[in-house]
Amino acid sequence: MSDAIADAKRALRAELRERRQLRSQSARDAAALGIRTQLDALTERFGVRSMSCFLSTTTEPGTREFVDAAVARGIRVLLPITRADGLLDWSVAVPGADITEGLFGMPEPEGELLGPIAVGDVDVLVIPAAAVGRDGMRLGWGRGYFDKTLGSMEGCPPVYAVIFDSEILDEVPSDVHDQPVTGIVTPTQTLDLTPPRR
């Protein structure tokens, strides 16, 4: 990655992180409700029986209510668990599971580890992002876990990044290893950006 791209990514991430930290609790609660509504509609549209999602941090658009509701409806939800080698393990979400802090402070479930290829047969992937460009390029938080996962999947299912509405940008800095997403889920809308990757 060129220094200019790396610097642009770093600066944009810092700005986005600061904006997220300034959101009020009531704004975060409203966002979580909106994300649940949008993801409920997305899973219904795709007839999802199995999917990946993530447990949101306190500053991310909230996904936890959606995960709990999806599991209660019988959807198999795989949650990511970070590994030191840069890959993701996966664990099936279960009601009342203990949550621990992962390698980088991300909330992760305690449970049976299924290995990196467990996500290969899901109907849709729902992943975190810092921002997404209108061309579908996703800016992550810089550790490359989801880019590696998406880049290694054959017949990748639709991939939706969860962000706030203000984080849909005209473009984001990207390099060759960065992976695009199929669409964006925000608290107020779901946008399809590219044809599903199946």
Rank of each mutant, 00 (worst) to 15 (best):
S2M: 14
A6R: 15
D7T: 09
R10M: 11
R13V: 02
A14M: 12
L16I: 14
Q21P: 15
R23H: 04
R23F: 04
S26Y: 12
A30I: 09
Q38T: 00
Q38E: 15
D40H: 13
A41G: 15
G47K: 01
R49E: 15
S52H: 02
L55V: 10
S56K: 04
T57I: 11
T57H: 10
T59I: 15
T59W: 15
E60T: 09
G62R: 02
V67A: 03
D68E: 12
D68F: 13
A69N: 09
A70Q: 03
A70F: 02
V71D: 08
A72H: 10
R76Y: 05
T82K: 03
D85K: 13
G86Y: 02
L87T: 13
L88M: 06
L88Q: 00
A93M: 11
A97E: 01
I99T: 04
I99L: 14
T100K: 08
L103H: 11
L103R: 05
G105V: 12
G105L: 11
E108W: 00
E110I: 02
E112T: 05
L113N: 08
A118F: 10
D121N: 10
V126T: 05
I127M: 03
I127N: 01
V132T: 01
R134S: 08
G136D: 08
G140A: 06
W141D: 08
W141V: 00
G142W: 02
R143Y: 08
R143E: 07
R143L: 10
F146V: 01
D147M: 07
D147V: 13
L150N: 05
A161W: 00
A161C: 07
I163C: 13
S166V: 00
I168R: 10
D170E: 13
P180E: 11
G183S: 12
G183W: 13
I184S: 03
T186D: 05
P187S: 06
P187R: 03
T188H: 07
T188D: 04
D192I: 10
P196D: 06
